[in-house]
Amino acid sequence: MNRQKIEELIELVEKSDIAELEVHFFGGRKIVIRKNTPGGNDTYLMNAPPTHVQPNAPIPQPIPVPTHQETEKSATSTEQSETDNTSKFTEIKAPMVGTFYRKPSPDSPPYVNIGEHITVGQVICLIEAMKLFNEVKSEVSGTIKNILLEDASPVEFGQIIFLVELD
């Protein structure tokens, strides 16, 4: 899906009565378009397709994500949004390709949950590649606002895993 299509979808949502549109694509990728309502934000979330890991294959071009400014321009062109906090969030990206795990073992609780506070050096997930399990540590302190991958999902190098609101 290209940028023009996304903008068309945004326009569709804007003109309709619906508050949120979630579009799932073949392969697991999805886009969520949420109308800017009082107390709410325009949010664009994308999940990587749950396909097998092909690190040597060209990394698919990410769907262009409208920036905060573009979002306002296309979806809320007549009002200044001061409630959109998404752009304030810091992204924590996968340092390697592999499989993402939220828990140290299947029976354990997750390392972190949405809403929890994390500190620099804290282990926040595991990534496994070729039976080598790597702890991923946070380089920031803040509050987890979103976790963009399911447990045991494939992850590409550089893919965003967590959104964090810095202290």
Partner: peptide, 21 residues
Amino acid sequence: ITDDGRLILECDNKKIKFSNG
């Protein structure tokens, strides 16, 4: 096997590389 250790599977005339599985 790739020179960084991944497995190459041929399936439907395509070669797929795996880092896990």
